[in-house]
Design a binder for these strands. Structure first.
Length: 254
DNA sequence: ATGGCTTGAGTGTCAAGA
């Protein structure tokens, strides 16, 4: 089983890349973030033509998440249950007996800002709910754009970024609190290249200089972690014309 | 140098991303 996540930074612009990627990699499920479109504009037919079902939660201009899957989704949930939020950042579905959480964690803008406070409060509610879901589902995967680089080795220039948003200690503590539910950061279960990142700034030739961060993650419950044989960042789509600033990440499970 | 790109909104130029 192949599970993947990709922040596409506008599904409208990136749809050709997504369709090509589905055809090339044939994942069982692909979690998307930053659709930046209302539900009425979701390209369900084009995705169906590529052989995939869609569960999606969009909004105008910002945010928006989707789970594409070869088999139909069941038990779809929108947003964090019990947590009131205008922003569409979470969709959950069961695919072939695996409970998938697709999350677009708030960016936080800058440490101490209102958006940073919103990010930390959001992460607290998210962790609480994921912990409950982990009790209900032994086969649980939490995929998405976490907007947190968990360790200094996940940052191209840790000194320059020290204490900044995406790497600040409260954010990293919130990430560890998710892991402490009993979820494994699947990427770190395996040997990986030095300076592996999933996001690179569009500006200043960020990708060419590998000036990036690892902020997109796949966390797995113990049962799924035991079945996981690889976790890979796919750099190829970032090399295309008009790329997303994020790369896809995918796991292979036995 | 608080810049540097990209997107969506909408037709000016700004907010937001990370």
């Amino acid at each position: 089983m192949k599970l993947a996540t990709w922040n596409v930074n506008s599904l409208n612009v990136r749809l050709p890349h997504v369709l090509d990627w589905l055809r090339l990699h044939q994942p069982d499920a692909l979690c998307l973030q930053e659709l930046k479109m209302e539900d009425a504009r979701f390209p369900r037919d084009a995705i169906m033509a590529a052989g995939y079902h869609s569960a999606f939660l969009g909004q105008k201009t910002y945010n928006g998440v989707a789970i594409l899957s070869r088999t139909p989704a069941t038990g779809v949930v929108h947003n964090i249950p019990g947590h009131s939020d205008e922003q569409k950042r979470v969709i959950v579905a069961t695919i072939s007996g695996v409970r998938l959480v697709c999350a677009y964690v708030p960016n936080g803008q800058s440490v101490g800002s209102e958006k940073y406070q919103y990010k930390l409060a959001w992460l607290q509610a998210f962790r609480q709910w994921v912990a409950e879901e982990a009790v209900r589902s032994s086969r649980l995967a939490v995929l998405g754009d976490y907007n947190i680089a968990p360790e200094d080795r996940d940052v191209h220039d840790p000194k320059a970024w020290e204490g900044q948003v995406l790497v600040s200690e409260p954010e990293r503590t919130a990430f560890r609190a998710l892991v402490d539910i009993g979820l494994a950061d699947s990427f770190r279960m395996f040997d990986q290249p030095e300076k592996s990142f999933t996001w690179w700034d569009y500006r200043m030739n960020g990708f060419k200089r590998n000036s990036g961060m690892r902020i997109d993650h796949i966390l797995l419950s113990p049962e799924l972690a035991a079945r996981c044989v690889s976790c890979t960042v796919d750099l190829e789509p970032r090399k295309l014309e008009r790329p997303s600033d994020h790369a896809p990440v995918w796991c292979e499970l036995n």
